[in-house]
């Protein structure tokens, strides 16, 4: 099996995550889709590390995880704050900043 299959899987998961971000309205689900995209990117990094024969890709994937963790913490805090004031977790309800 060609290791490129991992990359194809990564591309597919990334695109699915993107569709989820664009189509879902529940902020938490949107967030999970973002996580999916990040994970897909990580898979690509890990695969590239293997293809190239060095560990730099894995280090980047590691950093990505750390950043994703930060993002989740802050993002969920924002969702909670919005939910507290608007009683809704729908991203479509927070649409006051518009034309």
């Amino acid at each position: 099996m060609s290791p490129n299959n991992y990359l194809v899987l990564s591309a597919l998961l990334f695109s699915i995550g993107a569709i989820g971000v664009v189509l879902r309205r529940n902020a938490i689900v949107v967030f999970m889709c973002v996580e999916l995209m990040l994970n897909a990117a990580n898979l690509a990094f890990v695969t590239f590390a293997r293809l190239l024969g060095n560990l730099d890709g894995q280090v980047v994937a590691f950093f990505t995880m750390v950043v994703a963790a930060c993002e989740v913490v802050v993002g969920l805090a924002i969702i909670v704050t919005i939910f507290r004031s608007r009683r809704s977790a729908s991203v479509d309800d927070a649409n006051l900043l518009k034309y």
Partner: peptide, 19 residues
């Protein structure tokens, strides 16, 4: 996006060094 990415993979690095 997916098609472009997958298309690009076909043209990507084809070597396999292993870790």
């Amino acid at each position: 996006f997916a098609v472009l990415l997958i298309g690009a993979i076909g043209r990507s690095y084809t070597g396999f060094a292993g870790l």
